[in-house]
């Protein structure tokens, strides 16, 4: 395990997410994994078609898959962290079997458990999440470690044919919390009303 290297990665998580979501297609549906990815997505703007998680660790990709099957004409982007992804590695195999063309998964990999004191995750060792995704059958799976690569893959992240997996190596940093609403039932209803209109809660 290298406990130091991610302190020097050039990509910054908030900037990566901001760039991604500033160019967001209005129909795009976002699932944010618990912890820092939820704060990052909210820092870029608290939108009804975001589903930011405060729990359900290991479930972000599966939520994205259920959504992708239900809404095949919309783009689904799961933005999660390395710790959350490690808890649900099996879900990558499940996605691969379904092979939804409208699903992209982007991991913000700082090699740390950010909410519990920045302890190392397995990716601080030799665990390569993009290689895991590839091994489960993702034909498009990339490691992104610099701005140039990120910029060149942006169209792919936004519109490429899925399922797609991107592991973005980001600097380990503690940033100010930007919190979305905490009430899960509200977040769910807000999301469904934005998709289906007020009938969704009748």
């Amino acid at each position: 395990m290298d406990l130091d290297r991610s302190n020097y990665y050039s990509l910054r998580r908030r900037e990566v997410v901001k760039i991604l979501l500033d160019q967001r297609d209005s129909g795009m549906l976002i699932v944010a994994g618990l912890g820092a990815p939820t704060w990052d997505v909210t820092a870029a703007g608290d939108e009804p078609l975001n589903f930011p998680l405060w729990g359900a660790m290991g479930g972000a990709v599966s939520i994205g898959l259920g959504l992708a099957i239900a809404q095949p004409t919309r783009r689904i982007l799961v933005i999660t962290g390395d710790g959350e992804m490690l808890m649900g590695l099996g879900s990558l195999a499940t996605v691969s079997i379904q092979s939804p063309s409208n699903l992209a998964i982007l991991v913000l990999d700082n090699e740390r458990y950010g909410e519990t004191g920045m302890q190392a995750t397995h990716t601080a060792g030799n665990v390569d999440l993009a290689a895991v995704a590839r091994a489960t059958g993702f034909s498009e799976s990339h490691n992104i470690a610099d701005k140039k690569t990120f910029r060149s893959l942006l169209p792919q992240i936004q519109n490429g044919e899925g399922p797609l997996f991107f592991n973005v190596k980001v600097r380990a940093e503690n940033l100010p919390l930007v919190l979305p609403p905490k009430d899960g039932a509200f977040l769910k209803d807000r999301f469904r009303v934005a998709l289906f209109g007020s009938d969704a809660v009748r």
Binding site: G59, I63, G66, A70, S91, T94, F191
Partner: peptide, 19 residues
């Protein structure tokens, strides 16, 4: 699924999307 808890999360996503 590879494990049952995936199903709980999957069906939450399904419901978000109207399934």
């Amino acid at each position: 699924l590879t494990t049952e808890e995936e199903g709980i999360a999957l069906l939450a996503g399904a419901w978000l999307g109207g399934d």
